[in-house]
Amino acid sequence: MPEESHIALLIDADNCPAAKIEVILDELAKFGVTNIRRAYGNWKSTGLKSWEQVLHEYAIQPVQQFAYTKGKNATDSAMIIDAMDLLYTQKLDGFCLASSDSDFTPLVMRIRANGLKVFGFGEKKTPMPFVNACSKFLYLENLGMPDPASEKPDPAAQRKNAKDLKGDAKLVNMLRAGIEAAADDDGWAPLGAVGSHISNVSSFDPRNYGYRKLSDLISEIGLFETRKSSNHIYLRDKKATRKTGS
């Protein structure tokens, strides 16, 4: 049996809703065991009451950080110091930073430079430098999306339609680059290989666009041919097909 990956979860309690902790942990369980769980904040603040109610339930260690100077976020500094200590003193395979604060962008880049993955979780207000720096980033509004056939989803988690997807040049270029990198001589690329390539070069996740799976997003965007073979899905760029005439 392969050894489990070990992940350290560091939560900026001031910038992460406590109501999302269960879905965060569920998501991290796909990648390994979260054996270090810490939440940072001034626990004397009434604004963290919702977090106090879930700390024991999910075995999260509260780390007290007083606001030494008004207007300055001491929590960020405490998280950064702890992250660097953990990086050099613990045998970890990855970090998870739960925050919507871009101040952690240099930390993410430093951790990744050591060969570890960084999973980011934040709200849609999270600045793009932090989002792009992570190995994988998920918007909290898109986690725990209800079944489309049941209750109406949160408007913030509504999926983007084909027009919006096609108009996202960054997304389209990323998908085309992934297909090109994994394609055979006829231009067909396995969906799994495309997804792996994209994950290696970006923090992309289809749920950030309102789709549970990459195949659902591909189907909606309408720019790629698809075919199934032996339970595998293959993709080909329609644009490339028109050029070759095949």
Rank of each mutant, 00 (worst) to 15 (best):
Thr34Gly: 00
Gln53Glu: 13
Ile24Cys: 13
Tyr58Lys: 08
Ser50Ile: 08
Ser45Arg: 01
Gly41Pro: 03
Val54Phe: 02
Val23Pro: 06
Asn35Glu: 12
Glu27Lys: 09
Gly47Thr: 05
Gly47Tyr: 13
Arg37Leu: 02
Arg38Val: 05
Lys20Tyr: 11
Asn42Ala: 07
Trp51Phe: 01
Lys20Gly: 06
Val54Trp: 02
Tyr40Met: 04
Glu22Gly: 09
Asp26Ser: 13
Trp43Val: 01
Glu57Tyr: 07
Gly47Gln: 09
Glu52Cys: 09
Val33His: 08
Leu28Val: 12
Phe31Val: 00
Val33Ile: 05
Thr34Ser: 09
Trp51Cys: 00
Arg37Cys: 03
Ile21Gly: 05
Gly47Leu: 10
Lys30Ile: 12
Leu28Gly: 09
Glu52Asp: 09
Gly32Pro: 00
Gly32Trp: 07
Thr46Asn: 11
Asp26Thr: 13
Val33Leu: 07
Gln53His: 09
Glu22Ser: 12
Ala39Glu: 13
Ile21Ser: 01
Ala18Cys: 04
Gly41Thr: 00
Thr34Phe: 11
Glu27Gln: 06
Asn42Glu: 15
Arg38Glu: 14
Ala19Gln: 03
His56Leu: 13
Phe31Asp: 01
Ser50Phe: 07
Val33Thr: 08
Val54Asn: 01
Glu52Thr: 05
Arg38Gly: 10
Gly41Cys: 01
Phe31Pro: 00
Lys20Ile: 11
Trp43Ile: 00
Gly47His: 09
Tyr40His: 07
Gly32Phe: 11
Trp43Cys: 02
Thr46Lys: 09
Trp43Gln: 13
Ile36Arg: 10
Leu25Pro: 07
Ala18Met: 06
Glu27Thr: 13
Tyr58Cys: 04
Glu52Leu: 12
Ser45Trp: 02
Val23Asp: 02
Val23Trp: 12
Phe31Tyr: 11
His56Cys: 10
Ser45Asn: 13
Asn35Leu: 09
Phe31Asn: 07
Glu22Gln: 06
Trp43Leu: 04
Ile21Gln: 05
Leu55Ile: 03
Leu55Arg: 03
Gly41Lys: 01
Pro17Val: 04
Lys20Leu: 12
Thr34Met: 13
Ile21Trp: 10
Lys49Ile: 10
Arg37Thr: 03
Glu27Asp: 15
Glu57Thr: 07
Leu28His: 03
Glu57Phe: 06
Ala29Lys: 08
Glu27Ile: 11
